[in-house]
Amino acid sequence: MWPTSTRVAVVTGGSRGIGRATVSRLAADGLAVVVGYVAGKEQAWAAAQEVAVAGGRALAVQADVAVEADVAGLFDAAEEAFGGIDVVVHSAGRMTLAPVSDLALADLDNLYRTNVRGSFAVAQQAARRLRGGGALVLLSTSVVARPLPRYGAYSATKGAVEALTKVLARELRGRDVTVNAVAPGPTVTDMFLDGKDEELLARFAAEPPLERLGTPADVADVIAFLASPAGHWVNGQVIRANGGVI
């Protein structure tokens, strides 16, 4: 077991995108980080190695967030390696876009499995295990508050995440643990870029008053604030990190 003088974070979906940027950001803040992943083993281990090379502490652990035993094992690994858990960031997610009239229900089931069941499974373990002063940060999407065609199913799953956030924050009264959600706008990740041409990306980039797409680092900075002692008075909130789109 590592020494436990520093805070410890578990980041699901930590092998790429916003999760990967969050791993780097929290490690830079001095946290030991457990990189959760379901696929992309090489990317996850590269993320952990990057932290180690910079003088931090990290390990990668495979876990399907929709499988209760996997999620429990992820948290077990964090406690065994580092002695406890202070921050949980649930970045793992899935996005399928289609008009409501055209979406296959099998695709809806897959979205629900990862985005709703997975969020609940991770939140449940966080509620049981986070130490006092800790923080749970879930990932939503700004599209929940800005309805766009083809985003119906995805937005519905993330709306569930926002509801869960607000309820759990109140259920943890007396534990000194915060629960918040970060809802990114258009952000340059593989998941967002998939299936979008240059013209569509340019339209997305022109919408924010800041006139650009977000980056994973932009979102990771917001997550890191909520996970830090400086952000501990923010609780039960959904932060729309989108450059001012809405």
Results as ranks from 00 to 15, higher is better:
1 M>P: 04
2 W>Y: 11
6 T>E: 15
7 R>L: 13
15 S>M: 00
17 G>H: 01
19 G>P: 05
25 R>I: 03
29 D>K: 06
31 L>W: 13
32 A>V: 10
36 G>I: 00
37 Y>R: 00
44 A>P: 01
49 Q>Y: 05
52 A>W: 08
61 V>R: 02
65 V>E: 00
69 A>K: 10
69 A>E: 15
79 E>L: 04
91 S>Q: 05
95 M>E: 05
98 A>V: 14
115 N>G: 06
116 V>I: 15
119 S>C: 13
121 A>L: 15
124 Q>V: 10
125 Q>A: 14
130 L>Q: 07
135 A>M: 12
139 L>A: 07
139 L>T: 06
147 P>V: 14
150 R>Y: 13
152 G>C: 11
158 K>D: 11
159 G>E: 13
161 V>R: 06
167 V>W: 14
171 E>S: 09
173 R>L: 13
188 V>P: 01
190 D>K: 00
195 G>F: 14
196 K>I: 07
201 L>M: 09
201 L>V: 03
201 L>C: 03
208 P>V: 04
213 L>I: 00
213 L>T: 02
216 P>V: 03
220 A>S: 05
222 V>A: 12
222 V>L: 11
224 A>H: 12
233 W>T: 15
234 V>T: 07
240 R>N: 06
241 A>P: 02
242 N>M: 11
243 G>I: 01
244 G>W: 00
244 G>N: 00
